[in-house]
Nucleic acid binder design. Structure first.
Length: 798
DNA sequence: AAAAAAG
């Protein structure tokens, strides 16, 4: 059969078309047809007559060639009766997968694996040229015209085996195969002989991933074996100093104690250690912790902090003009004078909008951009109304609920002096602080409560609080309080306060989740939105930094090393610890703030940030909302926020009340799409920048400076963070470190068991500190077992 | 699946 001409080939495709007998041989470059020579002409040029094409001698029978590895004779023919691989291609077993797609199990390529399709082959032409198998086995099956490494299967998702850390094929020696089929049949990579192995570049030099520290990693050395006789001599049991509780409480840090009484604290007397008790174990534990809480002095053991209302002193309201500023909104002259004394004279838009309605007693939904003065927006009307109402003899009449302890502190600090001028008592109820003051406050009588939900419910269950007289309830950061994790607590409290009271909901972002609360608890609410909830703070500049992963740490450090105060946001507690440590190692004074620290540590680091001794705060979203620190000129998002609301709240830590600020977000390549979408949803027009360490552009935008790399010693940092005597935060001992910060450096990392393990003896509080430090939830968490603390909420949602 | 909120 003659070789098909181009025409003949094309023609054969069209159904029912008879190919021309003899087309031109081909076409010259100018388009002229190439004609075949007649036999005469061939003879004239010294060529013989044209030969007919003949099939090559069939050499495919086995006997004619050297045996190959995959010639298996010891195996029965496959189902279907074929023996040769070539045979089963056309009618190979078809399968359907779970989604109903059909595919052929596996088709080895004739050309081997190194081959490549010719460039000019179009998909869909009858013969693909690069293999001569003839018809495709299945017409509807898409087949890629290039050579795919069938092993990779990267279109299926998931990982390749090597990525999962499994064994590497090449480890097993070339050609070795003991699993029945050869590798190509299994869809695995072909093995190479030594000399046909593809060329590889020179071996890359290993570069350590350690970012900053130039000091060489200390070499591991085996610890000297300690024999019993090497141990320091221990005094006799009777001679050892016995620490009574009082000794422990003050002065002597756990690490400096020479000996610890090895009996557990609660069984110090002569009871046998493991006393049998007919009560089940958990009940015994319950009772013990209850005893402890009752007995415990406020500052004992826990790194707590205390709060006291600040006073403004006497204010003179004689000069207040009733038609100006706050007075015109209906705020009593006493309050106006008190505000004036603090330099607050003219109301912000959100305040102008909400105060009159709220004073009139309406339910208000208030939305104002971050840093726009929402606290006074609900605080002033609440105070006004309560001052005007008749006393209830000590039961609280105002309730402000906030999502974090810091925010509760801040809110109480703002409102307490104002309340004082109206002779109202305001108290702060929040977790992580002593029960004593809070219980006493309620005994004394309270007018206004600023609280985080958890502790307030705790006190409610103890019967210490009576919320039946509450006139005004405020939800600050309402959309956050409507979050899944908060919702149960919030509804509990909202159900407890009288249903005919006034409710005020405030946040910078209000959304769908709030609607549930609004529908259930608000009566005929009026909504005041002085701005859109999208980014509208004009003094805020947004920069999106595209950063290669290996430069992220250095860029973070350089930006943190800028002048002025910066807040850095991370996603996890551990992340903040790590970044803060890295920054200090690079010579930038930075501290971590997250909910896993003791309350004292949290308060101290925030105080250090506010007074400027620690200019860089690395925080989780605990600091994302509401926290006000003056002159924060940059917010850096080290990890992207969960959603656009979080972005706006984080960003709102800077550019507050009309000041300027930059919001920079680090964006790794894989975060681009989500980050851009998020910025779009936030309504942010961010400038994008390919950032690299040391580049001028980065410095222009963020003020980044190179780091000097001289590490800040832990001791130096701890000196700043250490509990100040007589300060607002009281620790269990003087000097040194104990709370959330000393634990790791002194405790030698994560030594020992998890917090839940040690039931008796030891210092439970210290255990918990360490647990908190490493971001885990210790064994004291109700949720227990390291489970997410809102896992119930998620489950309910499903 | 993080973080926050009670101990």
């Amino acid at each position: 059969m003659p070789r098909p001409t181009p025409h003949g080939r094309k023609a054969a495709k069209a159904p029912g078309f008879k190919p021309a007998k003899k087309g031109p041989k081909g076409f010259k470059a100018d388009g002229a047809a190439k004609n075949r020579w007649s036999d005469d002409k061939r003879a004239a040029y010294g060529k013989g007559p044209r030969k007919q094409w003949e099939p090559r001698e069939d050499r495919s029978s086995r006997d004619d060639r050297a045996p190959r590895r995959d010639d298996r004779t010891d195996r029965a023919p496959r189902e279907g009766g074929y023996e040769r691989r070539d045979d089963y291609r056309s009618d190979a077993p078809r399968r359907s997968d779970a989604k109903g797609r059909n595919f052929t199990a596996y088709e080895p390529r004739e050309g081997g694996f190194g081959g490549r399709a010719p460039r000019n082959v179009e998909r869909g032409t009858e013969s693909r040229g690069y293999d001569n198998r003839g018809e495709r086995p299945s017409g509807d099956r898409e087949r890629r015209p290039f050579n795919r490494d069938d092993r990779s299967r990267d279109d299926r998702g998931g990982f390749k085996r090597e990525d999962r850390g499994g064994f590497k094929r090449d480890d097993r020696g070339a050609g070795r195969d003991d699993r029945g089929f050869n590798r190509e049949d299994r869809g695995e990579r072909r093995t190479f002989n030594r000399d046909e192995r593809p060329e590889r570049g020179p071996r890359k030099e290993y570069r350590p991933a350690r970012a900053y520290d130039a000091a060489p990693r200390p070499k591991w050395e085996p610890r000297a074996e300690r024999k019993p006789w090497d141990r320091p001599e221990r005094p006799n049991r009777e001679d050892r100093p016995r620490f009574q509780r009082d000794d422990r409480r003050d002065g002597v840090p756990a690490d400096e104690r020479t000996w610890r009484d090895d009996k557990p604290r609660f069984e110090r007397d002569d009871k046998p250690r493991f006393q049998r008790d007919d009560k089940p174990r958990f009940e015994r534990e319950e009772r013990r912790s209850f005893d402890r809480r009752e007995d415990r002095p406020a500052s004992e053991n826990l790194d707590q902090m205390s709060w006291e209302a600040t006073e403004l002193g006497e204010v003179d309201d004689s000069a207040v003009v009733a038609t100006e500023g706050f007075a015109a909104l209906g705020v009593p002259t006493k309050l106006v004078a008190a505000l004036d004394k603090q330099g607050i004279t003219s109301p912000f838009p959100i305040q102008t909008a909400t105060i009159p309605d709220a004073i009139a007693g309406r339910d208000v939904l208030g939305r104002g951009q971050t840093g726009s003065g929402k606290t006074l927006g609900f605080g002033l009307p609440m105070l006004t109304r309560i001052a005007a109402a008749e006393s209830t003899g000590g039961a609280p009449r105002g309730l402000v609920l906030v999502p974090t302890r810091e925010l509760a502190l801040q809110c109480a600090d703002v409102l307490a002096p104002l309340a004082k001028t109206l002779r109202l008592d305001l108290t702060l109820i929040a977790g992580g602080m002593g029960y004593g003051p809070q219980l006493r406050a309620f005994e004394r009588g309270v007018d206004i409560v600023v609280a985080t939900p958890g502790r307030l419910i705790d006190l409610l269950e103890q019967g210490a609080v009576d919320l039946s007289q509450v006139l005004v309830t405020v939800l600050d950061e309402a959309d956050h309080m409507a979050d899944l994790g908060f919702m149960p607590a919030v509804t509990t409290l909202m159900d407890t306060v009288p249903s005919d009271g006034q409710r005020l909901l405030f946040s910078a972002t209000l959304d769908g989740a709030v609607d549930k609360i609004v529908k259930k608890y608000l009566h005929d609410p009026i909504t005041h939105e002085v701005d859109s909830d999208r980014a509208s703070v004009t003094t805020m500049e947004h920069v999106l930094l595209h950063v290669p992963p290996h430069e992220k740490n250095l860029i973070t450090a350089e930006i943190a090393n800028r002048e002025g105060r910066s807040v850095l946001f991370c996603r996890t507690q551990m992340g903040t610890n790590r970044v803060a440590e890295q920054l200090r190692a690079a010579g930038v004074m930075a501290g971590a703030l997250h909910g896993g620290l003791t309350q004292g540590a949290r308060t101290r680091i925030l105080a250090a940030f506010k007074d400027g001794s620690v200019p860089v705060l690395v925080a989780t979203d605990v600091a994302a909302r509401g926290i006000h620190v003056d002159d924060v000129t940059l917010v850096l998002e080290i990890d992207p926020p969960m959603n656009h609301k979080d972005y706006l709240h984080r960003a709102g830590r800077t550019a507050r009340a009309g000041t300027k600020g930059v919001v920079a977000s680090i964006c790794l390549p894989h975060q681009r799409r989500s980050m851009l979408r998020l910025l779009g949803a936030a309504g942010v027009k961010a400038e994008q920048l390919n950032a690299h360490p040391g580049e001028e552009e980065l410095a222009d935008k963020t003020g980044a400076r190179p780091v000097d790399g001289v590490p800040i010693e832990d001791a130096e940092y701890e000196r700043i963070i250490a509990p100040k005597r007589g300060g607002g935060a009281r620790g269990p001992r003087q000097g040194g470190s104990r709370g959330g910060f000393g634990g790791r450096s002194q405790g030698g990392g994560y030594r020992g068991q998890g917090g839940g393990g040690r039931r008796f003896g030891g210092d439970r509080d210290r255990d918990r500190d360490r647990d908190r430090d490493r971001g885990g939830r210790g064994g004291f968490d109700r949720a227990g077992g390291g489970r997410s603390n809102n896992s119930e909420g998620w489950r309910r949602d499903r």
